[in-house]
Design a protein around this nucleic acid. Structure first.
Lengths: 224, 224
DNA sequence: AGATGACCTCCTGTATACGATTAGTCCGAT
DNA sequence: ATCGGACTAATCGTATACAGGAGGTCATCT
């Protein structure tokens, strides 16, 4: 490992493995219910079992992996109900995040919102769809960070990744329509209108829920 | 390890270590900012470093531990602001939990609520204060589980433990008064009154916040 | 043929070993 | 006396080793 990262900025193998496994789960490369055999993952990633094991514990705490003692780890299974349930949590949490972000408008992290919006606009227009999904999550998380509540942001990260996972599974990409709602939410936050920001955040999640339900009820995904 | 636990019910060392470390953090035996040296913890608990390392990752994901690569782990520090911030999150999340629990009244997990209430009443009357704190967390978590939303319950567990941690640090035990509010919340849930259940849950957290603020503003804790 | 039991393989759980980096300490030079 | 640099101890990051449980397979018995 001739690696030039210095000091605390060093990225350990366990972090790289965690991010890579999470990415593979979110993208569907690792399917729901698939076994995660430590030896094989370690060999595939070119590391020993230890970093893999530590990653598995973290991803289990985040709810992406199910671990049974002495049996092993599998990618979690997400029933349709569990998918739908998440939206209730999101409405409560993201509504709060939007309200607090509006209250704190103009903070440094609020600028990040505009930045993500611009990146997303560009990605949508270029048709880079996988990137759009990541930026979608990034925007929602940026709202959480703009709220200036550290635990809220800590908690939202796995929640939003789980949401991204659900959408990647159901192939219900909302794309451009979704970004107009983001823009609208951003305006309310910038205006410092707490009630409106919360309402728009909740409405946005509710719209995502409808899109999810349409996609799961019918074979053909609603691609609005 | 001549240990008779069978099958999936087996408790691994990492689980035991995780629970023990979490307990020590919540109780204050491990102070904020204290270094967690893997070797020493392993020796103190009579295990090797591996279970300890895996525990550290989990507790870091839950927000109780801060890890800096190549430097080590320390018990997280909680500023007064961070403590206060948590209450905003709790009001949003626990309000939702109470509403959903009221919607689902009569489910199997709703019976658990009554059970915890009874245990707590007994513990309060016997003056077993440490147990009361644990039961307090257990009650709030039981509301989360009665909501019938798996991710909500998953998310609430570390959140409530964090709340318990904060209270143990500030020595702001609310005791009996708190349990009357619990009883009142339980009644609203049992009655299936969603609005009232949410309102009472939010009010309960708001009262806890006031108690927390009073305890942090003044040296002498408000012990209502 | 179906059921039962022994064996065997795979894999997890745990421990130990070693390399690398950090931070503290001591010494010398200015 | 203070600053800088080299040495050293402490401790993390990673790899490897080994024991024991879980599940499958095959043969044998009924």
């Amino acid at each position: 490992m001739t690696d030039l990262t210095l000091g605390a900025a060093h990225r350990t193998l366990r972090d790289e493995v965690t991010n890579e496994l999470r990415r593979r789960i979110l993208s569907g490369e690792l399917a729901q219910g698939e076994r995660l055999v430590e030896d094989r993952l370690a060999a595939a990633l070119g590391v020993s079992r230890n970093p893999v094991r530590e990653s598995i514990r973290v991803l289990a705490a985040e709810g992406f992996i199910r671990v049974v003692p002495r049996i092993g780890a599998t990618v979690a299974r997400l029933s349709a109900e569990e998918g739908e349930e998440l939206f209730d949590v999101r409405m409560a949490v993201e509504g709060l995040a939007a309200r607090l972000a509006a209250r704190k408008r103009g903070s440094a992290s609020a600028a990040r919102l505009r930045q993500v919006l611009d990146q997303a606009k560009e990605a949508v227009e270029s048709g880079r769809l996988e990137e759009v999904a990541d930026l979608n999550t990034a925007f929602h998380l940026a709202v959480g960070e703009a709220a200036g509540n550290s635990y809220l942001a800590l908690m939202m990260k796995p929640m939003l990744q789980r949401a991204q996972w659900i959408f990647s599974q159901t192939a219900a990409v909302r794309g451009p329509h979704s970004w107009q709602e983001h823009l609208s939410l951003w305006e309310a936050i910038e205006a410092g209108d707490e009630d409106e920001a919360q309402a728009r955040a909740v409405a946005h999640v509710a719209a995502a829920r409808r899109s999810f339900l349409a996609a799961t009820r019918e074979p053909k995904p609603a691609n609005d």
